[in-house]
Protein backbone atom coordinates (compact mmCIF):
# COMPACT_ATOMS: atom_id res chain seq x y z
CA UNK A 1 0.00 0.00 0.00
CA UNK A 2 1.21 3.49 -0.78
CA UNK A 3 0.05 7.06 -0.46
CA UNK A 4 -0.24 9.43 -3.41
CA UNK A 5 0.01 13.20 -3.81
CA UNK A 6 -2.20 14.40 -6.65
CA UNK A 7 -2.54 17.84 -8.23
CA UNK A 8 -5.45 19.93 -9.48
CA UNK A 9 -5.39 21.73 -12.82
CA UNK A 10 -4.48 25.14 -11.35
CA UNK A 11 -1.38 23.69 -9.62
CA UNK A 12 -0.31 21.86 -12.80
CA UNK A 13 -0.54 25.15 -14.73
CA UNK A 14 1.40 27.01 -12.00
CA UNK A 15 4.23 24.49 -12.25
CA UNK A 16 4.45 24.34 -16.03
CA UNK A 17 4.28 28.00 -17.04
CA UNK A 18 6.95 30.36 -15.58
CA UNK A 19 4.90 33.49 -16.45
CA UNK A 20 2.15 32.60 -14.00
CA UNK A 21 2.07 34.75 -10.84
CA UNK A 22 2.30 31.74 -8.51
CA UNK A 23 5.16 30.07 -10.40
CA UNK A 24 7.85 30.79 -7.77
CA UNK A 25 5.71 29.51 -4.91
CA UNK A 26 4.80 26.47 -7.00
CA UNK A 27 8.45 25.76 -7.69
CA UNK A 28 9.29 25.90 -3.96
CA UNK A 29 6.45 23.46 -3.32
CA UNK A 30 7.68 21.17 -6.14
CA UNK A 31 11.19 21.05 -4.65
CA UNK A 32 9.81 19.38 -1.52
CA UNK A 33 9.08 16.26 -3.56
CA UNK A 34 11.36 13.82 -5.28
CA UNK A 35 11.12 13.33 -9.03
CA UNK A 36 7.68 12.03 -10.12
CA UNK A 37 6.42 11.92 -6.52
CA UNK A 38 3.62 14.26 -7.54
CA UNK A 39 0.91 12.70 -9.68
CA UNK A 40 -2.09 13.60 -11.76
CA UNK A 41 -5.09 11.50 -12.71
CA UNK A 42 -6.81 11.51 -16.15
CA UNK A 43 -9.66 13.94 -15.38
CA UNK A 44 -7.18 16.65 -14.40
CA UNK A 45 -5.08 15.93 -17.47
CA UNK A 46 -8.18 16.26 -19.67
CA UNK A 47 -9.21 19.49 -17.92
CA UNK A 48 -5.76 20.98 -18.57
CA UNK A 49 -6.16 20.18 -22.27
CA UNK A 50 -9.77 21.43 -22.35
CA UNK A 51 -9.03 24.83 -20.83
CA UNK A 52 -6.25 25.35 -23.36
CA UNK A 53 -8.38 24.23 -26.32
CA UNK A 54 -11.37 26.40 -25.34
CA UNK A 55 -9.37 29.61 -25.19
CA UNK A 56 -7.16 28.97 -28.18
CA UNK A 57 -10.16 27.92 -30.31
CA UNK A 58 -11.85 31.26 -29.59
CA UNK A 59 -8.66 33.21 -30.23
CA UNK A 60 -7.89 31.53 -33.58
CA UNK A 61 -11.47 31.93 -34.78
CA UNK A 62 -11.74 35.59 -33.75
CA UNK A 63 -8.39 36.52 -35.28
CA UNK A 64 -9.11 34.75 -38.57
CA UNK A 65 -12.53 36.41 -38.80
CA UNK A 66 -11.06 39.82 -37.97
CA UNK A 67 -8.40 39.49 -40.70
CA UNK A 68 -10.88 38.10 -43.17
CA UNK A 69 -13.33 41.01 -42.61
CA UNK A 70 -10.47 43.49 -42.69
CA UNK A 71 -9.26 42.13 -46.03
CA UNK A 72 -12.70 42.86 -47.46
CA UNK A 73 -12.98 46.40 -46.03
CA UNK A 74 -9.53 47.94 -46.34
CA UNK A 75 -5.98 47.21 -47.44
CA UNK A 76 -5.30 43.46 -47.51
CA UNK A 77 -3.04 41.95 -44.82
CA UNK A 78 -0.53 40.87 -47.48
CA UNK A 79 -0.13 44.47 -48.68
CA UNK A 80 0.75 45.81 -45.21
CA UNK A 81 4.28 46.24 -43.88
CA UNK A 82 5.15 44.73 -40.45
CA UNK A 83 4.40 48.01 -38.61
CA UNK A 84 0.97 48.30 -40.25
CA UNK A 85 0.29 44.65 -39.48
CA UNK A 86 1.16 45.27 -35.84
CA UNK A 87 -1.32 48.19 -35.83
CA UNK A 88 -3.97 45.90 -37.32
CA UNK A 89 -3.35 43.43 -34.48
CA UNK A 90 -3.88 46.28 -32.00
CA UNK A 91 -7.21 46.98 -33.71
CA UNK A 92 -8.08 43.34 -33.17
CA UNK A 93 -7.41 43.66 -29.42
CA UNK A 94 -9.40 46.90 -29.28
CA UNK A 95 -12.48 45.17 -30.69
CA UNK A 96 -12.47 42.98 -27.56
CA UNK A 97 -11.72 45.64 -24.97
CA UNK A 98 -15.21 47.16 -24.62
CA UNK A 99 -17.00 44.23 -23.04
CA UNK A 100 -17.12 44.40 -19.25
CA UNK A 101 -18.46 41.02 -18.18
CA UNK A 102 -15.99 38.82 -16.29
CA UNK A 103 -15.71 36.10 -18.94
CA UNK A 104 -14.98 38.75 -21.57
CA UNK A 105 -12.29 40.17 -19.28
CA UNK A 106 -10.69 36.73 -18.99
CA UNK A 107 -10.76 36.43 -22.75
CA UNK A 108 -9.24 39.88 -23.24
CA UNK A 109 -6.48 39.11 -20.76
CA UNK A 110 -5.75 35.87 -22.63
CA UNK A 111 -5.81 37.60 -26.04
CA UNK A 112 -3.54 40.41 -24.82
CA UNK A 113 -0.99 37.99 -23.40
CA UNK A 114 -1.16 35.76 -26.46
CA UNK A 115 -0.69 38.70 -28.80
CA UNK A 116 2.33 39.87 -26.80
CA UNK A 117 3.86 36.42 -27.29
CA UNK A 118 3.15 35.93 -30.98
CA UNK A 119 3.02 39.44 -32.50
CA UNK A 120 6.67 39.58 -33.61
CA UNK A 121 6.23 36.33 -35.54
CA UNK A 122 2.78 37.01 -36.89
CA UNK A 123 3.70 40.29 -38.61
CA UNK A 124 6.17 38.42 -40.84
CA UNK A 125 3.64 35.85 -42.05
CA UNK A 126 1.37 36.35 -45.05
CA UNK A 127 -2.39 35.80 -44.73
CA UNK A 128 -2.36 32.12 -45.71
CA UNK A 129 0.60 31.49 -43.40
CA UNK A 130 -1.28 33.17 -40.52
CA UNK A 131 -4.21 30.84 -41.19
CA UNK A 132 -1.92 27.80 -41.26
CA UNK A 133 -0.35 29.02 -38.02
CA UNK A 134 -3.77 29.36 -36.35
CA UNK A 135 -4.87 25.92 -37.56
CA UNK A 136 -1.77 24.31 -36.04
CA UNK A 137 -1.59 26.41 -32.88
CA UNK A 138 -3.82 24.22 -30.67
CA UNK A 139 -1.87 21.13 -31.74
CA UNK A 140 1.45 22.76 -30.81
CA UNK A 141 0.19 23.97 -27.41
CA UNK A 142 -1.48 20.69 -26.51
CA UNK A 143 1.60 18.70 -27.56
CA UNK A 144 3.83 20.88 -25.38
CA UNK A 145 1.44 20.77 -22.42
CA UNK A 146 1.15 16.99 -22.60
CA UNK A 147 4.93 16.59 -22.80
CA UNK A 148 5.48 18.86 -19.77
CA UNK A 149 2.89 16.93 -17.77
CA UNK A 150 4.47 13.55 -18.44
CA UNK A 151 8.01 14.78 -17.74
CA UNK A 152 7.09 16.30 -14.36
CA UNK A 153 4.38 14.08 -12.91
CA UNK A 154 3.55 10.41 -12.65
CA UNK A 155 0.21 9.37 -14.01
CA UNK A 156 -2.33 7.42 -11.98
CA UNK A 157 -5.12 5.85 -14.01
CA UNK A 158 -7.99 4.37 -11.96
CA UNK A 159 -8.43 0.62 -12.30
CA UNK A 160 -11.21 0.14 -14.78
CA UNK A 161 -11.86 -3.13 -16.53
CA UNK A 162 -14.33 -3.03 -19.41
CA UNK A 163 -15.99 -6.25 -18.31
CA UNK A 164 -16.19 -5.49 -14.56
CA UNK A 165 -19.88 -4.71 -14.12
CA UNK A 166 -19.33 -4.37 -10.38
CA UNK A 167 -17.08 -1.33 -10.93
CA UNK A 168 -19.45 0.24 -13.42
CA UNK A 169 -22.37 -0.18 -10.97
CA UNK A 170 -20.25 1.23 -8.17
CA UNK A 171 -19.33 4.36 -10.14
CA UNK A 172 -22.92 4.92 -11.26
CA UNK A 173 -24.26 4.68 -7.73
CA UNK A 174 -21.36 6.79 -6.47
CA UNK A 175 -22.40 9.56 -8.84
CA UNK A 176 -26.00 9.40 -7.64
CA UNK A 177 -24.95 9.31 -4.02
CA UNK A 178 -22.61 12.30 -4.24
CA UNK A 179 -25.14 14.31 -6.20
CA UNK A 180 -27.74 13.46 -3.55
CA UNK A 181 -25.46 14.89 -0.88
CA UNK A 182 -24.35 18.03 -2.65
CA UNK A 183 -26.26 19.45 -5.62
CA UNK A 184 -23.61 22.09 -6.29
CA UNK A 185 -21.41 19.38 -7.78
CA UNK A 186 -23.97 18.79 -10.51
CA UNK A 187 -24.24 22.36 -11.72
CA UNK A 188 -21.30 24.65 -11.19
CA UNK A 189 -18.56 22.13 -10.50
CA UNK A 190 -19.04 19.25 -12.85
CA UNK A 191 -15.33 18.88 -13.46
CA UNK A 192 -14.60 18.89 -9.73
CA UNK A 193 -17.21 16.21 -9.26
CA UNK A 194 -15.63 14.03 -11.95
CA UNK A 195 -12.20 14.46 -10.37
CA UNK A 196 -13.60 13.48 -6.98
CA UNK A 197 -15.26 10.36 -8.43
CA UNK A 198 -11.93 9.44 -10.05
CA UNK A 199 -10.09 9.84 -6.70
CA UNK A 200 -12.63 7.66 -4.89
CA UNK A 201 -12.24 5.08 -7.65
CA UNK A 202 -8.44 5.09 -7.22
CA UNK A 203 -8.74 4.73 -3.45
CA UNK A 204 -11.37 1.96 -3.63
CA UNK A 205 -10.08 -0.19 -6.51
CA UNK A 206 -6.45 0.92 -6.93
CA UNK A 207 -4.87 1.96 -10.22
CA UNK A 208 -4.43 0.39 -13.64
CA UNK A 209 -1.09 -1.12 -12.49
CA UNK A 210 -2.95 -2.89 -9.65
CA UNK A 211 -1.35 -0.66 -7.00
CA UNK A 212 -3.50 0.10 -3.94
CA UNK A 213 -3.35 3.32 -1.90
CA UNK A 214 -3.97 3.76 1.81
CA UNK A 215 -4.38 7.54 1.47
CA UNK A 216 -4.66 10.21 -1.22
CA UNK A 217 -3.79 13.88 -0.81
CA UNK A 218 -5.13 16.23 -3.46
CA UNK A 219 -3.54 19.69 -3.79
CA UNK A 220 -5.74 22.47 -5.13
CA UNK A 221 -5.96 26.26 -5.01
CA UNK A 222 -9.65 26.17 -5.82
CA UNK A 223 -11.54 27.46 -2.76
CA UNK A 224 -14.91 26.23 -4.09
CA UNK A 225 -13.59 22.73 -4.51
CA UNK A 226 -12.23 22.73 -0.94
CA UNK A 227 -15.54 24.05 0.39
CA UNK A 228 -17.66 21.47 -1.48
CA UNK A 229 -15.37 18.62 -0.53
CA UNK A 230 -15.50 19.49 3.17
CA UNK A 231 -19.27 19.81 2.99
CA UNK A 232 -19.45 16.37 1.42
CA UNK A 233 -17.09 14.89 3.96
CA UNK A 234 -19.24 16.10 6.82
CA UNK A 235 -22.43 14.68 5.30
CA UNK A 236 -23.65 11.20 6.08
CA UNK A 237 -23.25 9.01 3.00
CA UNK A 238 -24.69 5.96 4.75
CA UNK A 239 -28.13 7.48 4.26
CA UNK A 240 -27.81 6.81 0.54
CA UNK A 241 -27.34 3.85 -1.79
CA UNK A 242 -26.89 0.57 0.04
CA UNK A 243 -24.79 -0.69 -2.83
CA UNK A 244 -21.96 1.55 -1.72
CA UNK A 245 -21.53 -0.58 1.42
CA UNK A 246 -19.67 2.14 3.25
CA UNK A 247 -17.06 2.47 0.47
CA UNK A 248 -17.82 6.14 -0.01
CA UNK A 249 -17.60 6.96 3.68
CA UNK A 250 -14.30 5.11 3.99
CA UNK A 251 -12.86 6.71 0.85
CA UNK A 252 -13.76 10.20 2.03
CA UNK A 253 -11.99 9.47 5.29
CA UNK A 254 -8.71 8.65 3.54
CA UNK A 255 -8.80 11.28 0.81
CA UNK A 256 -7.84 14.79 1.87
CA UNK A 257 -7.62 18.13 0.10
CA UNK A 258 -5.08 20.89 0.80
CA UNK A 259 -3.91 24.21 -0.55
CA UNK A 260 -0.32 23.61 -1.71
CA UNK A 261 1.02 27.14 -1.10
Amino acid sequence: MASANLLDTNVVFDLIYPDRPRYKKALEFYKNFKNLELSIEPKVNIECQRVTVEFIGKFSTDLENFLSHRNQRSKRWDQLNPKQRSDALNDFLNTHSNNNNSHAKDILSFYTYTMKTIRSNLVHLNYIEVKEYLLNLSSELLGNLRQQIFVRFSYIIPYYAIDKEEIIRFIDSLRESILGLDKSFSSSQKEDFNILVSLIQIYTFGDSESRRYDSLLFYTNDENFLKSFNKLKNSDPSLNEKLLDGYLKKALEFISFEKPY
Binding site: F13, Y113, N121, N136
Partner: peptide
Protein backbone atom coordinates in the same frame (compact mmCIF):
# COMPACT_ATOMS: atom_id res chain seq x y z
CA UNK B 1 8.14 30.23 -41.19
CA UNK B 2 4.93 28.95 -39.63
CA UNK B 3 6.83 26.20 -37.80
CA UNK B 4 9.27 28.68 -36.33
CA UNK B 5 6.40 30.95 -35.20
CA UNK B 6 4.69 27.97 -33.59
CA UNK B 7 7.82 27.05 -31.66
CA UNK B 8 7.81 30.52 -30.06
CA UNK B 9 4.22 30.12 -28.90
CA UNK B 10 4.58 27.28 -26.43
CA UNK B 11 3.95 29.33 -23.26
CA UNK B 12 0.70 30.89 -24.43
CA UNK B 13 -1.58 29.03 -21.97
CA UNK B 14 0.33 30.42 -18.98
CA UNK B 15 -2.27 33.10 -18.29
CA UNK B 16 -5.12 30.62 -18.03
CA UNK B 17 -7.00 29.48 -14.96
Amino acid sequence: KVKSALENSKNIPSCLL
